[in-house]
């Protein structure tokens, strides 16, 4: 929960993205630092925009410091849409509420199935258990969803865990792989190529096309990992693949 009286004002600007979309920037758009406060404001604003634009809204993309709003330009023109967005921004700032929920995800941390776990330990000068404890200690925020269906960008990991992407991406990263790139962490929803550092496996499906709720998390939610052993991982439906 953020209160306007206690939080610094975030500069918000509406810009043109295309013939039928606006991009709303939160904060200094030249900055590459990320902020939980900004993310929370984006999540709240997105909810307001959905009700404000109604059937004219085609799609929304929430990201680290921006919100892309795609609208039906034959239903309402850009002047009307920009006006609606400005109204939302004027009111959303006053009524700001953090709609996030906390999701706990189990991880089977293992040097065998998370081959970069020893690398992280060496880089940080810590034991494997200390690395695992650090990864589990933080409540991460879902900053963006993209790259692939169900891929949630979580941040930020403890600086001691920050690790650059692999010089050569793997052709196959297994579904459920828990990974780190710079100060971000994620669970690969499906097998795909990928260059992130792998530290373990999560048995919780991150994307399910068949179920009503396709993803356990949404942008703005918080995620915390907890460690499980191999047997618990298998009991929860996890699968083991050789590298």
């Amino acid at each position: 929960m953020t209160h306007p009286a206690t939080s610094p004002t975030i500069n918000i600007e509406i810009d043109i993205a295309s013939e039928n979309s606006f991009v709303i920037y939160f904060g200094d758009r030249h900055s590459t630092s990320i902020s939980a406060q900004v993310s929370s404001q984006i999540a709240a604003t997105a909810q307001h925009i959905k009700s404000s634009l109604g059937g004219c809204l085609v799609d929304l993309v929430s990201s680290y410091a921006s919100l892309l709003v795609i609208y039906n330009s034959l239903q309402h023109d850009h002047l009307w849409v920009r006006h609606q967005l400005q109204q939302v921004l004027n009111t959303a700032i006053e009524q700001q509420q953090d709609p996030s929920k906390l999701i706990q995800l189990p991880v089977f941390y293992s040097p065998q199935y998370g081959p970069e776990l020893p690398l992280l330990a060496r880089n940080a000068g810590l034991s494997l258990d200390q690395i695992i404890d650090l990864h589990c200690a933080t409540q991460y925020r879902v900053y963006a969803i993209g790259f692939a269906p169900g891929f949630a960008y979580l941040g930020e990991v403890d600086p001691r865990l920050a690790t650059a992407r692999l010089a050569t991406p793997r052709l196959k990263v297994p579904a459920g792989a828990v990974a780190i790139a710079d100060r971000q962490t994620a669970v690969y929803p499906a097998q795909s190529p990928g260059g992130w550092n792998l530290i373990g496996l999560c048995p919780t499906p991150m994307f399910n096309a068949e179920q009503q709720t396709h993803m356990p998390v949404a942008v703005g939610d918080r995620v915390q990992f907890y460690a499980i052993d191999q047997q618990q991982y298998l009991d929860l439906g996890g699968e083991l693949h050789e590298f």
């Binding site: 295309s18 990201s63 921006s66």
Partner: peptide, 29 residues
């Protein structure tokens, strides 16, 4: 820059300066 939403037709300019016009199957961010 921070990753952000990409709409249909967006003209992305990577470091090599050669434009890419993004179409229907583009990544969303």
């Amino acid at each position: 820059m921070l990753s952000e939403g990409i709409c249909l037709g967006a003209v992305q300019i990577p470091a090599d300066g050669q434009p890419i016009v993004l179409l229907n199957d583009r990544q969303t961010i």
